[in-house]
Design a protein around this nucleic acid. Structure first.
Lengths: 333, 333
DNA sequence: TTGTAGGCGTTATCAC
DNA sequence: GTGATAACGCCTACAA
């Protein structure tokens, strides 16, 4: 079943059939109708492989993420897929893991599939060391690279980021203004957004004239119980704090568990703010105040930018979106 | 940059280059080496479009799910993608939503992309009414359809399911044996697995000689607060229960919130069991006892079955995996 | 062991 | 408005 079968049955040339398929106006209404009927009758669908070969594009975008089961990334994937689909693009998904080598390997894999562009979802793709980002610059020589919540300068590299720094700074400032002096900061690593967030924390302290103390920052695993233990250990060692600001909701959950376990009253004796505004915030008692970093907006903006890029439009290489604090029971403002 | 460029530079025919690419043994070691060197030097990658056209396959599997941001589906996608990748297959992702029309549309979309098979992740694809499954049977005439936690009989349709019925029955029986007489059952809808679970609940009651009472089952939305309110309303209306068995963790979270709000002691006055063993179970206080329905095993089994199918092996059309109860603080056994 | 040539199903460029 | 025909890049009989 191919274009020849259709052309034969409709008594036209394959060129005409092709025109009908592609909506070329140079076909008489009569012919078009006949061809469409035959196509329908035969249940004909154009072969995408042949079409891709000729056009050298599959109208497909590669989406990379470290781990699609991470809640934030999972919803990012959802919004990206939906938005791409609405623009007539398909998506091929790769979970690259967090290691540089595997990231590189999967990027190559996607490139070998000749996707039209690659979207890197999440802030795990831009490393602190410039040489570790070389592979991205390299790939961007060939196809557009879109970063969702990561930032890197380079030809054909476009970033859409949330103002994580500003959001954390603002959240910390809210805590300080409502009377908190010692904010324990829980962070997850040193990805692009982790660094931004940490800077926001430092900035808020600096604005308020409070000193930044290394021991008030805790590198936490992405697990509520492990986080709880870490906090417990810090407190046992004499660390005093009246608020917890977490770079990820899951760590804020750990803080809530810590407080509940030790009979510390939330928010009277301990205020807690999470980040991402995920469903986890609504599972604890009390529910967690959290920064909504606008996954959906990040994703739709990314796709819209990409569409402009693919249409050879001129587009800014960096777009920034503002976060929003969602107030719940772990804070008293 | 194509096979001709390589052949020219290596002073061999394109046939030889092709043989080298495809690991055909009929090439002298010397030639192979030279060709590989040239390929490397030129940075040559075979064009997948041309290859796909000739072979009529892209070594790509379509993955459909209702909503990739659902935690269970998100991890299913993760495991499917990883397992497919390890077998040298790529994955095209589609989020179809929950409506029959859109499911159908996306299935067609995937088919038009000529994927080698389609994996339907989650139990939302098999409807109660036979005629609503017609589109699956139709598609299965052309390519293999794999159901992850759904079951449908048909040519080229393969199912891998968790024994949801047995798991719920066993959990309910545990509750009954530990002294509970009135188990409130929270369910999510009437998908394949929802029906299985409900049957498990009924079976446990029947085995214990307890009556099944319609009013002891609550159809809940996938939201902890809405679920909590629903339970509250039922209790206000005079419904009495000493245990809650939920078909999804998120509803169990709602039950915990209900108990916490009303000062009901868990598990002394109310036992709660969830389903999926997701991260949500570890966010509440106390943590929720939950049924682990083995997403990873379901996914790897599905992919392994698929690989056999694609290799024309003879494989059973249905595989069943057992669930496991993970005991935590919301039960006293 | 290696090379030649035909086919995979489109799209696009010419003529007419 | 329509039709022939040459790409697109690869694989694979079949020949040598």
């Amino acid at each position: 079943m191919n274009i020849y079968d259709v052309s034969e049955k409709a008594n036209v040339s394959i060129a005409t059939v092709s025109r009908v398929i592609n909506g070329n106006p140079n076909v008489s209404e009569k012919t078009r109708k006949r061809v469409l009927e035959v196509m329908d009758e035969l249940g004909y669908t154009p072969n995408v492989f042949a079409r891709s070969l000729g056009l050298n594009t599959m109208k497909t975008i590669g989406i990379m993420c470290a781990d699609s089961s991470d809640p934030w990334l999972a919803s990012a994937i959802y919004y990206l897929e939906q938005e791409l689909d609405s623009h007539g693009y398909g998506s091929i998904l790769c979970c690259s893991g967090y290691l540089p080598e595997t990231k590189k390997k999967y990027l190559e894999l996607l490139r070998s599939k000749r996707v039209d562009a690659i979207i890197l979802a999440g802030s795990h793709y831009v490393e602190a060391a410039a040489r570790d980002n070389e592979y991205l610059l390299e790939a961007a020589k060939e196809i557009p690279i879109m970063l969702v919540n990561g930032h890197l300068e380079g030809h054909q590299i476009y970033s859409t980021v949330c103002d994580d720094s500003g959001a954390v700074c603002s959240a910390a400032t809210d805590l300080i203004k409502s009377g908190h002096q010692s904010i324990l900061y829980l962070y997850a690593g040193n990805s692009y957004s982790s660094i931004q967030k940490m800077e926001g924390y430092k900035k808020a302290l600096s604005i308020a004239g409070l000193p930044f103390r290394e021991e008030m920052t805790l590198l936490c695993p992405k697990d509520p119980d492990d986080t709880q233990q870490l906090i417990e250990h810090a407190a046992d060692s004499g660390l005093v704090f009246d608020a917890v600001l977490a770079a990820e909701d899951i760590m804020a959950v750990g803080a809530v568990k810590y407080a509940n376990k030790h009979g510390i009253k939330i928010p009277q004796d301990l205020s807690i703010i999470g980040y991402n505004n995920s469903i986890l915030c609504r599972c604890t008692n009390p529910e967690i105040t959290s920064v909504d970093n606008k996954v959906e907006a990040l994703c739709t903006t990314t796709v819209n930018t990409l569409m402009k890029v693919l249409a050879n439009g001129n587009v800014p290489t960096k777009a920034t979106i503002s976060a929003e604090l969602i107030k719940r029971g772990t804070t008293n403002f």
